[in-house]
Amino acid sequence: MNHTVIDIEDAVVSYREDVALRGVSLRVASGEFIGIVGPNGAGKTTLLTIINDLGKLLSGKVWVLGNYVTKTNRHSLRKQIGYVAQLQNIDPKMPMNVREVAMLGRYGLLGLLRRPGRHDWKIVDDVLELVGMTHLAQRPIGHLSGGEQQRVAIARCLAQEPKLFLLDEPTASLDWKAKTDIIELIKLIHNSRHLTTLLVTHELSALPVACDRIVLMKDGLIWGNGSPEKVLTDENLSQLYDIPIPVVKARRQESTPT
């Protein structure tokens, strides 16, 4: 059995009066691909951000890659964790091109006062090729579509050469073609680079193919945890999203590509 790379113990996170996580525990083994599913406000993003310490724990512990996350080791741990946040508005006039943005992923690894060398640019060019963005490498980052920007964000993470790959709704607000392309790309990268991946998504149709395990979240708690076949049932989804089973069935049929 693969060794544990993430161990979250009884994590509680609160944003003032709103409790985002209410004592969540989760163990992730090396090489796993986990899909995290749940309604808005369930605590999915918070679960990802306590792993790289962007989210602040009120109580509990998070153990990542052999260390408990603390204020002193968080910067060094973050260098080993690739994180793709939800699609963000990028200033169309931002004076940076695609290649420069992908290079940002290497800056933490390089450390202070060191400049990227030929080796770093080669890694960036390789990951841009992997995500199919070589032809847009010199284009200003603000001129890209949402799907293209997410590909660059994935390239930036890969340039970091991470051990863990955290993705927060990377397909949100993309068209169907871009969604399926991005999910396929993530699966390809996960397999070829032997990563441990946690993917927050609402793309239920893609999860059984991509994921080894599904974590269902609701109201800041883990509500279900297991293989996609066991967990992603119409009954579970009906209770998770508070909608009747026939409606779940109909929506799942609509979202399944023909």
């Binding site: 962007l54 910067h75 973050r78 946040a85 940076m96 943005v101 940002l104 933490g108």
Partner: peptide
């Protein structure tokens, strides 16, 4: 490079270890 990353997106800069 640290200024450039922080200007682009502070959360992203934090996430890569800056």
């Amino acid at each position: 490079k640290e200024f450039q990353a922080t200007i682009f997106n502070r959360d992203m800069a934090l996430a890569v270890g800056i």
